[in-house]
């Protein structure tokens, strides 16, 4: 009994110390935000029902800057020249309809800087124009036209269940963030080179792209390889939902992904930064079972030896 009391005292002081240096210290050091479930409550809802066939004609307004590969529209510029012009390579819209939230997309087309939450950086009154211009309606019902475009983008995108974590990441994050451990650069996957010259040419292109991007964003967006360990799932989720929460005034735009796509983006970060997590869980279970058996035998041995001593 005395030993149990001692154990209780040791455990108590250990837990108090743990509480102070971990949960308590972190609660004091870091702001905490809860997710809104990617509802984008600040943006007005889409009132009109879109028609994909009409949207098909209207996207001609988009393909001046964006490629839509599935529809046969190549990007008008390569990634580096696009970054030289716009600061960042405009995304290919093939899967935009599934990666991004429907309401967000509609608002983005109507007013990019507002939907992206970068109005502090792009103020038309000061002549700071967002590189993506607002949509100018061809007819007089802008709401309807925007809804049509969104409907079209949704119709050409792959289905939600066909969207892999990697695809979601590449569309949503991959033009600004490299992921070294996933062999991903801002201008695409890094190929295997046989000749040093080809490799250096690629590196040069990448460095050029990164220079334009850094100028546009103020600083080069970080490599996300280890973000699942350095920031953790909750932080990443609430950060991409609204970057301004944690970093007031950051140049990082609100990405506008749907809740499902956000999950996939995080899944991808786990795949590159914590790829052994499944093995860890399986091995963990077996080791814990083994340690229990080990403890039982150790206790039995002690009882036997000490039977003669007491």
């Amino acid at each position: 009994m005395k030993e149990l009391l001692i154990l209780a005292v040791v455990t108590f002081f250990t837990l108090v110390t743990y509480y102070l240096v971990e949960p308590f210290a972190h609660s004091q050091m870091h702001k905490h935000f809860e997710s809104d479930g990617f509802a984008y409550k600040d943006l007005p809802a889409v009132t009109k029902k879109g028609d994909a066939s009409r949207g098909k004609d209207l996207v001609s307004a988009c393909i001046g800057c964006h490629g839509i590969e599935v529809a046969g529209f190549q990007a008008p510029m390569d990634a580096v020249s696009a970054a030289a012009t716009f600061g960042v390579n405009p995304p290919d819209l093939s899967n935009a309809g599934v990666v991004f939230d429907e309401k967000f997309l509609a608002n983005l087309i109507k007013n990019p800087a507002h939907a992206l939450m970068v109005e502090h950086k792009f103020d038309p009154a000061k002549g700071q124009m967002h590189p993506m211009s607002e949509y100018y309606a061809t007819g007089d019902d802008k709401e309807q036209e925007v809804a049509d475009i969104v409907a079209y983008l949704r119709s050409i995108a792959v289905k939600q269940e066909e969207l892999t974590p990697k695809m979601a990441f590449e569309t949503a994050c991959g033009r600004c963030h490299a992921v070294n451990y996933g062999n991903w650069t801002q201008i695409g996957e890094k190929p295997k080179f046989k000749k040093k010259q080809d490799e250096l040419a690629f590196e040069t292109q990448l460095l050029d792209y990164q220079d334009y991007l850094a100028k546009y964003m103020g600083t080069l967006p970080p490599d996300l390889s280890m973000y699942i360990r350095s920031r953790g799932e909750h932080y990443i989720e609430t950060f991409i939902e609204n970057p301004q929460n944690y970093l007031k005034g950051t140049a990082m735009p609100r990405v506008g992904v749907s809740a499902e796509s956000a999950e996939k983006v995080i899944e991808h970060l786990k795949d590159v930064g914590d790829s052994k997590r499944h093995e860890r869980e399986t091995v963990g279970k077996y080791v814990m079972i083994y340690m229990l058996i080990f403890a039982i035998f150790a206790i039995l041995w002690k009882k036997e030896v000490w039977r003669d001593l007491h």
């Binding site: 083994y290 080990f294 150790a298 039995l300 036997e304 030896v305």
Partner: peptide
């Protein structure tokens, strides 16, 4: 009798520890 039983538990514990060592 007593000491042989004690030996048994000690050996059993050793065997369990050995299994762990082999697994590692």
């Amino acid at each position: 009798k007593n000491s042989s039983r004690r030996g048994f538990m000690g050996k059993a514990f050793g065997a369990v520890a050995g299994v762990g060592a082999v697994a590692s």
